[in-house]
Design a protein around this nucleic acid. Structure first.
Lengths: 227, 227
DNA sequence: TTGCTCCTCACGTCACGTGAGGTGGC
DNA sequence: TTGCTCCTCACGTCACGTGAGGTGGC
């Protein structure tokens, strides 16, 4: 969106035009609502018109992404962005390296042992071993939230007569996807600064969301005569 | 869900249990809300408990499907179901055979031409041709809602530098999945009665939902170090 | 008898949309 | 000057969720 030479900000309507290609649910009233809720704070002209500078638009884009791709409610988005505002502006370098397995995003970090995963999923010991044999669960003795999702889905697949070996294709496919996504973000991932790693995380999250949509759309299309 | 021999209906809690495998956003308060809004009218016991007979559960399932898969607001669903109530109860035989591509479940049946799909997705003509070349969209000149989902996701993938040929793997994988699901339901699918075809549709929908969960869980697990 | 399930009714909430009535900018 | 964009403020709405206070069923 080329800016006119005499202005370095966008009006609310211009912001709408700039964002609606990316976010089909954006609206003027939504942008005003987000300001009323304290999520954005654009400057004003003398006569009260909102002025959106590049960082304002970037922040809006981030909010809309968190809503769309991570189903995050506004209250959570507000808290998280407030936390980032307080912690610095992205140019810090002196923070102690966070431990690799500590989730920076405040995820509940489920940790179950084998018995816990069996109880949670309803799988038998043998069935879980089958999933581990085919690479769907990595058998470290400690299982996280992804393992719970996988185990529960597998359990219900088994009810339909699907066997663990059939599920191997998920492992194979996901490996190919993950390799593609890693390749896509690798130019940024190899940079050292902390802003780069946040950008990688954002990109990967969006790619995961796109993957789900692509997979779902294609699968429904394939099966439309049975649906 | 096996019914006890002395009852031929389900309580609201039993309905919840029966439906939540298929619809993860169903709740007791939601079911009660749907009654308050006039979308369902279960009978009551002498003491006021709701009684859900098979047709009530079927109607609920239909409402939830229209919400989830066709993003239909309740007002529209209500009007549509009211129209169908007036037209007959599903046991008619004198209706002219519906044409094979007419959706039996009242889907809005999005139909776009090529220009419409391009406008809706933001893809260029060449990009859409690329998707068609790699089998993601079947180029009949008429596109449905699945094509819109696919095209929009593809558009955003392209923004990330993914090329149409990379997306071919979705086609390949989905073909394998679809073949597995068809094999699973084939014993029932070969029966002739109409109840069988409804059961096939229900099973396939659940398999699609399980597929999404399995895929999502495995992909997030694979990429956890980048998330 | 004891939980557990279910009931109603009022109110709350989340994320906006609508519309009246008015001012500002190229 | 004339549309067009933008402004506020009050109210509406959609789809539920919550919680109090109470009754029913194995």
């Amino acid at each position: 969106v080329p800016l006119s030479s005499s202005r370095d900000y966008l009006s609310i309507g211009e912001v709408l035009d700039a964002l609606r290609k990316e976010f089909d649910d954006v609206s003027i009233s939504k942008i005003r609502f987000l300001e009323a809720e304290g999520l954005i704070s654009p400057e004003r002209t003398g006569s009260g018109y909102r002025k959106f500078y590049a960082p304002d638009v970037a922040r809006l884009r981030q909010i809309l992404t968190l809503q769309r791709d991570h189903f995050m409610p506004l209250k959570v988005i507000r808290d998280r962005l407030a936390g980032m505002d307080g912690a610095g502006d992205g140019t810090l370098a002196a923070e102690p390296e966070p431990s690799p397995d500590a989730q920076s995003n405040g995820a509940p970090a489920v940790e179950l042992d084998r018995a816990g995963l069996l109880a949670e999923s309803g799988l038998s010991d043998d069935q879980l071993s089958g999933l581990e044999d085919f690479g769907l669960i990595k058998e470290p003795g400690r299982y996280d939230e992804n393992d719970v999702v996988i185990a529960k889905a597998a359990r219900r697949f088994l009810d339909h007569g699907v066997e663990p070996r059939h599920l191997r294709m998920y492992r194979q496919f996901v490996d190919r996807e993950a390799a593609l996504f890693e390749q896509i973000v690798s130019p940024v991932a190899h940079k050292q600064d902390p802003e780069a790693s946040r950008e990688v995380s954002r990109s990967v999250k969006e790619l995961v969301s796109l993957s789900r949509q692509m997979h779902d759309g294609a699968l429904r299309a394939s099966l439309s005569d049975l649906l």
